[in-house]
Design a protein around this nucleic acid. Structure first.
Lengths: 260, 260
DNA sequence: ATCCATCTTCCAAAAATGATCAAAGTCGTG
DNA sequence: CACGACTTTGATCATTTTTGGAAGATGGAT
């Protein structure tokens, strides 16, 4: 296994609970303790996580750091996200108004929609999504104002919130850091505030969440699964989780990972 | 098999998981390790991917997600714009609030300020400027809302205008499409509306205009040269134009083009 | 204080790398 | 078609990087 891949997996494993012991990680990754220790040190140096005695915790403050380590960011742009994005993109009909929440999965969706070439109106609080959507002349892009979250491309704050509150859209694509059977949660209050507003602003709320997000919790709750019209996720979601969510009446769309 | 074809296949294989080891690639492509290594080096040079020990990861920027740096990169090819930007950047003092109008010259200024590393607050209606400024943790970036002008990274419309009207800044860096001895003008009514608001919102208005803009006219007037506190331009401005502008009491800062 | 898990430091084996070189292939020219 | 100039390929080898383990130091519990 590639060192870069291993480090990406470490981050992914940490996202699950926010922390993990080195023992857990060696079991999961099947490498020696020394190697793992070095990886964790490296990720710590680069600011992705912090050490504790016996383990590591994810650094929540840096959702994206100053110069996000390219290799890791790329690894997480997995085929799962692309597949989810593709499915989401196909939900949009010409002429509709669509909200794109900030995030990498929603950005994947935006990229896929742009490639479909259909004409519609987009609203987003993510500079990266706005930029990539604006490259298509068929798409009218609106951007929430607000302050840029340091190290990321997300717009937050009262400026953003006010522009959203006046909004009404056909579809909202929402990303999340974590979800349980009942709750959606993310890492900061400001983020949660915006997402909460998005949930209210659209007829159909589509949650885009790869399976690593499912059945974990983050600091700040921003909504309930009952507010979700459709959850698009990948095939690695556990059967129990799937049954549980379906049992609660949630519509699931589980997309296979297409290697493009 | 053609080298070009082989390289295309490499990219394709990388898309699957975002990364792959050289071993995987030789197995899949049936070429020697040396050749593959050279291919990967080549693709790395050309920016399609990045190397890690034992393998390669796909460069997500090339994947088309977004790169607002492109316009700015071309802007900086002009040594005049770079010099103007540098001079503008030096006007900012730590802690000030600064408006960056949309445009490539103002973007050059933003890039120079970021490299100075000082802490200040920025407001802009340009997605590219917002993105590049937000990469610095010292800079607090506010973005006007609004709709994206098709084919550019400029935010326009009532959303943008309203957020600007509530604003007050120490300095505003304004770009222009054209200027005469008395008038500033640009190509669209929407653009002019925004610039007009910027002119009112700052204590000191600094016009950044390379010499090609001086003494020409565009469709829509947005202000008068008397509203300008300082004009930063390059040495190719004609002596008559310079004398005329100085005669009207306009402060000029003519910067030599520093070749890099 | 004592014990045990964890951490650091070091070392040798294994893997990957960059450089070099001969063989094979490609191209343009007469 | 034959020739030389040039590029591409595959193999080898010394060097660097990474890995896994061992020995000793450190830190946190009881």
């Amino acid at each position: 296994m590639l060192p870069a891949m291993r480090r990406a997996r470490i981050i992914e494993l940490l996202r699950k609970d926010g922390m993990a012991s080195l023992k857990d990680l060696t079991d999961a990754l099947d490498v020696s303790l020394s190697t793992l220790r070095r990886d964790v040190d490296y990720l710590c140096e680069s600011g992705h996580l912090e050490r504790t005695h016996g383990g590591a915790v994810l650094n929540v403050n840096r959702h994206g750091s100053f110069e996000p380590a390219r290799d890791i960011a790329t690894a997480l742009e997995s085929s799962a996200k692309r597949a989810i994005g593709q499915r989401a993109a196909n939900l949009i009909k010409p002429g509709q108004t669509v909200i794109f929440d900030s995030g990498t999965t929603t950005a994947a969706a935006a990229l896929c929609v742009r490639e479909r070439g259909i004409a519609f109106t987009a609203f987003t609080n993510d500079l990266a999504i706005a930029t990539l959507l604006s490259a298509s002349p068929a798409i009218q892009v609106f951007v929430s104002g607000g302050s840029v979250r340091p190290g990321s491309t997300t717009l937050l704050g009262s400026g953003a919130l006010h522009s959203i509150l006046r909004l009404h859209a056909d579809i909202a694509f929402i990303g999340t850091h974590a979800m349980t059977a009942t709750d959606l949660s993310d890492t900061s209050i400001d983020l949660a505030e915006i997402k909460r507003a998005f949930l209210m602003a659209a007829d159909l709320v589509v949650l885009l969440a790869d399976s690593s997000k499912i059945f974990s919790r983050a600091f700040c709750s921003f909504g309930r699964t009952s507010q979700i019209g459709l959850l698009v996720t990948d095939t690695r979601v556990s059967p129990e989780a799937e049954a549980d969510l379906r049992g609660r009446g949630l519509a699931l769309d589980i997309v296979p990972e297409v290697p493009e």
